[in-house]
Amino acid sequence: MPREAAARMRIAFVGPTVPDASEIAGGAIVIRPPATQGDILRAVQEGAEAIGLIDGNFENVAPVWHKEILFALSRGLTVLGAASMGALRAAECDVFGMVGIGAIYRQYATGETEDDSDVALLHAPEELGYAALTLPLVNVRATLRRLADQRMIAAEIAAAVERAAAELFYKERSWSSIIAGARLPPDADRDALATRLRAGYVDQKRADALELLEELGRICGPRQSRQDWTFNETSLWTRLKDDPPAKV
């Protein structure tokens, strides 16, 4: 039996956050590329009973629509979100039953993190293993927090580095550009700081995504939670459902 057929009921949309997701999931979960508008609807129509949203495309294509997540939830599916686009959508849809997982989801849910681009990064295509070319701000912050907690860098240095990182466009964010723009004391050793940051890098997005994959692999059967809302079949939704975007 093909691997996808054997695991067709649990689907995860993931790419640059966990490039090796297929090896990690084995045959328990169907791994699909980052989601775009219509992909979650398509997964529901194909018979999925649980969906994990980690990565999603957004810049040159229409992103995952909240409405298709609500549709999945209204049909009794478990929908999990973490790490990247999944964390964003979970923070926006958790009141309807979407399950957010991980530190980044909690940061969005509590308002500690607000900007959608804080999880974004520039990366190579799937054919080149989604290699990361820039740093997501959420990982920069997690790295600074851990190093400051371990007293590997001073709190004021961490704050200056974080401000510099936040000021950069996500496609330009690297340790070199961050440190170059940081307002550090004149006697700060920028080379030593760069070495420390690279060595102590915390990939919070990957950690949260792995937690989602582990949880998704444990799910058996439909969701049993009580639903206190009704899905509204709008005309725009009907058009999407009847004619979903073609998968590129």
Rank of each mutant, 00 (worst) to 15 (best):
M1F: 13
M1S: 13
M1K: 07
P2E: 10
A5E: 11
A6R: 09
A6Y: 07
R10D: 07
R10Q: 06
I11P: 01
F13V: 02
V14L: 11
G15T: 00
T17M: 08
V18L: 10
V18G: 00
D20S: 07
A21H: 07
S22D: 12
S22F: 10
S22C: 10
S22G: 08
I24C: 11
I29V: 15
R32K: 14
A35K: 01
T36W: 08
T36C: 14
D39M: 05
D39L: 05
R42P: 03
G47V: 09
A50M: 08
I51Q: 01
G52F: 09
G52M: 06
L53V: 02
D55Y: 11
D55M: 04
N60H: 14
N60S: 09
P63V: 05
K67S: 12
E68V: 04
F71L: 04
A72G: 08
A72I: 01
S74T: 03
G76F: 12
L77I: 08
L77F: 09
T78Y: 15
V79T: 05
A83D: 00
A83M: 04
A90V: 00
V95S: 15
F96P: 01
M98Q: 01
V99F: 11
G100A: 04
G111K: 04
E112R: 10
E114F: 08
D115K: 11
S117K: 10
S117Q: 12
L121N: 00
L122R: 03
L122F: 11
H123S: 05
H123L: 06
P125A: 10
P125N: 03
E127H: 12
G129L: 06
A131H: 13
P136E: 01
L137T: 02
V140E: 02
A142R: 04
A142C: 07
T143E: 02
L144E: 00
A148C: 15
Q150V: 04
Q150T: 05
A154C: 08
A154H: 12
A159H: 05
A160E: 06
V161A: 11
V161Y: 10
R163I: 11
A165R: 00
A166M: 09
Y170I: 06
K171D: 05
S174Y: 11
S176T: 03
S176W: 07
S177R: 09
I178K: 04
A180K: 08
G181C: 14
L184N: 05
L184G: 00
P186H: 12
D187E: 09
D189V: 04
D191E: 14
A192K: 05
R196S: 15
A199M: 14
G200L: 04
V202G: 06
Q204K: 06
L210R: 00
L210S: 01
E215C: 14
R218F: 05
G221E: 07
R223T: 03
Q224K: 14
S225G: 11
R226A: 13
T230F: 15
F231Q: 00
F231K: 01
T234A: 10
T234D: 08
S235F: 11
T238L: 13
K241P: 01
V248C: 07
